[in-house]
Design a protein around this nucleic acid. Structure first.
Lengths: 337, 337
DNA sequence: ATTACATGATCAAACGTTTGATCATGTCAA
DNA sequence: TTGACATGATCAAACGTTTGATCATGTAAT
């Protein structure tokens, strides 16, 4: 670990001179010759500023945390890439962290923000939990930006146009001639799941079809939840001919559940899910999805957070410029087709 | 941000007293009464030690990095959980990071280790790259433990019994009556892919079957690589009746490629892949796999790294107690069945 | 010849911890 | 009454940076 003073004594100059040159601080007064000597020596000695010392002095770490319920979810890949890009551009480093439950999240935020390891955090609440439930931590306006859900204290948040995505999915099925369409939703508490359900209802209403409440389930996105959902839908008379699933992973799970129930897709049942990532192309049949601008969401989250850090406050943002895009694969087909 | 001196002045006592009590340092001499007052006040004021200050003083961060080529790969989920658990138990925090290529990795390690953000790192090399290629960084014995591959400088590494896994996969196919078995491997440069190929060859030799070299491909694990591999295999005369794929994701991709070539699985072609994670159950047909002890690998990596940090040196470890386990799904069937 | 100012460089404090050294006070033994 | 020692507490330095203040020197203007 070469330090500033190592470089300084190697060059035969003061520590402050070295510091100023390396940061090229505004108003630095140093001769061109020593400047070159300093730069050259620092390079040779492979000097790197110590992060702890610097953040202690500056009272900021230039690190942002991104806390997600499950890092290995393919859906997060794009999101994280967008966030990383934006962070890098603004001179920040992105740190990834996982927090499965409420307790985990409390702990994690306390460690990250409370101990000054990061300047701010982007948080997606674990499924079924709403931002207000960690009010304890946001008590004195911690620099946290929420994904997919707004905190009542308006601490900053970014959201996708979930209603539009669900409408796109539903319209696709309607265009294929389906009328008896089921909605497989997330947990009732989830704001984004709620917005998607609304979008579904809007599309149905606009097409002039009633929504059969027996065809709306809200079990969640886990694999076993798909079994529960399809079991319920199989009871309905008559059975639905198509499904809008509120989430890609849940959509994949629904395909599995349908197969176990000998319900063949897409012949007897069309399935379309919100969100897209590569695993959707690996299922059988490949899953029709609605692609959402996750990369932009990641970028927006970082920008929102940085604004929050600099200005002290940040507006909630709804990303609605890029409209959700249907990715037609083989899990949907025309009715009676 | 409450600091030590905030607490100290609130209690009316020196900073050092507070520090000693809160860390309950060995040989601390403080009256029971003040000890209680300090603890109580610290709790009330929600004091948390500043991470930068502490690591600056202690010259260690108690943070370990885990640098992987792709965080959203489902295979890493288990690995990371094992590593996180082990880290937590030993009083460390695990930081996750992604590095796709060699350049990324260089950069990342420089930032993490060079700037003293972490005490050590667990690294899985990106596909096709071997540890020796970043010799530049391991020049003065940086605290790095490699996953799946040993560094010639013996910097510490942990590996799975890849040969055993490939043998298990191959034996399964042999038991089903297959003889003409192909091996779809990783890139030739990958040590773990090499070990799996050896395991395949051992199993074939033991069963008394010759390996047709035309049935061994080494394109890699990406989706497009599966297309290349299957195109080659389709040319072989006679065609293989079964495939051992060296990696689960590649196995899923192989299913897709086979379908595109109208090669039906498992009727005309059985497929088994090394490694298991939930997406394998979502494909059609569900993919038969060989499960490997990834959680233990994560634990072992952390333990190896900590040993390295404390003792200064660490042995390479091969995890062979838990033998690879066949997960029979629907992508393999008996020949002529 | 004095003042004024620009230039090139250093000093020193501060960020929040930890920890060896030191101090003040009281108790006990000689 | 002095010395030895235990107890409860504080002092001060250090970790590696950054940065406002200061210093020394030379040059130009009065």
């Amino acid at each position: 670990m070469t330090t500033l003073s190592d470089v300084a004594s190697a060059v035969g100059v003061s520590v402050s001179a070295v510091s100023r040159v390396l940061n090229d601080a505004p108003g630095t007064r140093v001769s061109e010759e020593t400047r070159q000597r300093i730069l050259e020596t620092a390079r040779q000695m492979d000097y790197r500023p110590n992060h702890s010392a610097r953040s202690l002095r500056l009272q900021r770490t230039a690190v942002l945390a991104c806390v997600l319920p499950d890092l290995t979810n393919a859906l997060f890949s794009e999101l994280v890439e967008g966030a990383e890009d934006a962070a890098r551009e603004r001179g920040y480093t992105l740190l990834l962290s996982r927090a499965e439950g409420m307790h985990d999240l409390d702990d994690t935020l306390a460690r990250l923000l409370g101990e000054g390891r990061v300047d701010g955090a982007i948080v997606q609440m674990p499924d079924g939990l709403e931002p207000e439930s960690l009010d304890s931590l946001v008590h004195d306006a911690l620099p946290v930006v929420f994904l997919h859900a707004a905190h009542p204290r308006r601490t900053g948040s970014v959201m996708l146009d979930d209603a539009a995505a669900a409408r796109t999915a539903t319209d696709h099925l309607l265009a294929l001639g389906h009328e008896r369409i089921a909605f497989v939703g997330g947990l009732a508490g989830s704001p984004s799941a709620r917005r998607r359900e609304e979008g579904f209802r809007e599309a149905m209403a606009q097409a002039g079809h009633a929504v059969d409440e027996k065809l709306v389930t809200r079990f969640g996105y886990r694999i076993s939840d798909a079994d529960s959902a399809l079991a319920v839908l199989a009871e309905a008379q008559p059975r639905p001919t198509a499904l809008v699933v509120a989430n890609m992973n849940a959509g994949m799970a629904a395909l599995g559940a349908a197969r176990r129930m000998k319900w063949s897709v897409p012949e007897d049942l069309s399935v379309v899910a919100v969100h897209d990532a590569w695993p959707a192309a690996m299922t059988w049949p490949p899953l029709t999805t609605v692609r959402m601008p996750l990369r932009s969401l990641g970028r927006a989250a970082v920008e929102c957070l940085i604004e929050r850090l600099q200005v002290g406050t940040a507006a909630d943002r709804l990303l609605s410029n890029e409209s959700p895009q249907l990715i037609r694969r083989a899990s949907t087909s025309a009715i009676e087709g």
